[in-house]
Design a protein around this nucleic acid. Structure first.
Lengths: 115, 115
DNA sequence: ACCTATTTGTCCGTATGTATG
DNA sequence: CCATACATACGGACAAATAGG
């Protein structure tokens, strides 16, 4: 997993790291079940603080892409799980919008304008 | 806005603070447009670090309850928050799906099947 | 069952950057 | 220009869960 960091970029370091890992996932360099390096190790190799790496990992977790557990590390989620979290997000959105009186077309438009 | 913190609780401090503010909202002690105290000030009054308060504020922001802006502080969202929160849910869904490598058409389909 | 090392989770303190007013 | 206040990063400390000997 090769990640490049540009300290002079306006993009936050933790986002650069998260983006780099996402790219590695899309490129297939890391896949479901694979373990990401410990935050301390990756931080040292990228010359950034462990906390910055942990923040990047946390973003990926919030996106449902990885699982983090103490003592065990960070592992890439199975694709069905990542998809399940997306399906759940879509279900929740539709439920909320419907409850608020939105029509199907209006709900789709809510999403379209974000694309 | 009265918040109590129990340092000996197993609940993380930042969550205790966020929960306390949610309670104040429900109790009507703070309402839309009101400004929450600067993180540094609230931290000093609760005897916790500024970052811990900022993390609590960030959770509330992620939940669509408050807005955070540099230089201006943290303000409670307006009641048309219903719409704002839907927009945020849609934005978050699109962001997650995009990060996961989904194409626009596939994202729309995620929602359509839930209608 | 015990101990140790690993690794994330949380919190603290400090410093610097950046948008707002 | 200046003060305010969040945003990000660094570093250190301790706790808690996990894994391995």
């Amino acid at each position: 997993m090769l990640i490049r960091i540009d300290p002079s970029s306006s993009m936050a370091l933790n986002e650069q790291i998260a983006a780099g890992i996402r790219r590695s996932m899309i490129a297939g360099e890391v896949g479901p079940g694979d373990r990401l390096p410990p935050a301390k190790d990756l931080g040292r190799s990228l010359d950034v603080n462990m906390h910055t790496v942990l923040k990047a990992y946390g973003r990926l977790r919030d996106d449902g892409l990885v699982e983090m557990r103490r003592g065990r590390g960070v592992t890439v989620m199975d694709q069905p799980v990542a998809r399940a979290s997306l399906v759940e997000a879509a279900r929740s959105l539709v439920e909320q919008a419907t409850h608020a009186g939105y029509q199907p077309g209006e709900i789709l438009e809510l999403v379209e304008v974000q694309l």
